[in-house]
Design a protein around this nucleic acid. Sequence first.
DNA 1: CCTCCACAGGAAGCGCAGGAGT
DNA 2: ACTCCTGCGCTTCCTGTGGAGG
Length: 436
Amino acid sequence: MNGMSNLSLSLRAESDAEVLESGIVESKAKSEISEIVKNVFERRLLNASVFANKEIISQHYIPEKLPFREKQIDEISSDLSPSIKGTKPNNIFLYGKTGTGKTATVKHVLEQLTEFVSKQSLPVFSAYINCRNHPSKYKVLLKVAKSFYPSKDFLGYSVSFIYEKILDFCEANSAHLILVLDEIDKVKDLDELVYSLTRGNDELGKGSITLIGISNNLMFKEKLDPRTKSSLCEKELVFSPYNANELKEILVERCEKAFKPKAVSDSSISLVAALAAQESGDARTAVMLMQRAGEIADSEKAVLVVEQHVEKAKASVEEEIILSMVSTLPGQQQLVLYSISAMTIQHKGSRRITGEIEEGTLFSGEIFETYCEMAKHLGRRTITSRWYRQYINELEMYGLILITASGKGIRGQTRLIKLGFDAERIKSALEKELFK
DNA sequence: CCTCCACAGGAAGCGCAGGAGT
DNA sequence: ACTCCTGCGCTTCCTGTGGAGG
């Protein structure tokens, strides 16, 4: 999850560097006339891009049409419709993996709602809050207050004051507030936040507050306080991953606008869709892959994006994901992963275990042994086996390793561990991190 | 069938850092 | 400035589990 945001950051950084570079080229060019000509032509070439409007294929762009989410749009809008009739809608909880269009769908519905209520001048107001940036009750309330009193600055006021201000706003305008809390699992004191916001409804004579919670953590709901859970999840909506066909249609639609006509081959789109579907059904990765493939095509001065560019894009994106994931891991966990990758390489083709065991599969116990030896060798402290298991589970969650339970043929209960990515690639990424 | 193995993973607790309260 | 509280990373201790072997 984090990998994605890191990735977008580094992508942006890259384009910044490009801008900078061209700036240097420009200032240099002033001194030499021949240089100017050369650079103008070079720029011509650079401008000869496969993109028509790159913005549309960036992951921050929200398309007007959301294919395969009609049902969800329909449900959310019908759930919110009481607000335009002057009664309180149910709270809604949305969950689904990353890149399944949760945020885009909600934003789309809110846009439509805002458009409608402003035409009819109805007292319905909405606010979108990304809890990653506002990860506490105080910060969320602050953000809410600010969006309804844009001119005032509540920084420094107490929680209860801000809370009262929000209620005042509802009361004074008979307003129905719709608060979208994206990445709601990031809020530290969520129980209290949900409690006070839902209790606000009891205090209000006029108006209401409705919450829409969004989370991509499927387990998160179970960890909530039962009361919070029941009030937040009055209505639930699941966003399932896209399949390859759906992804393809999404991509086709986006590519038509983002790329120049006939700049993308049909087969490359199919390949991107297939790759993304196989990974996770994540539209964001698909879009990112497509964008990267286009950039690679540009850099090769190609006029058509073909499968080859997609393959390269996949490798480059994968490498970035691995690096950004690996670099945020705690040192000991990096060592564990390093042991796994080293062992995978070492054991290649020379496993002495008999039976039906797939190539590259390791036992939980032997990895721990190697890890201990390695840590000792490097003069580092070692974690206990219990915590090691915890680390292993986390690594699986990140998708860096795959775990299967030992079945017949293996004594005792253990787990078989396999790397999720290429061993050499992980090892080299880790070496950069571990050894200075 | 029982016992042993090789773990898995829950529960409790500990030391520490950093933030909140006073 | 001070204490108090809380979350985090981790250890210790423990119970559970599925298969191998006698």
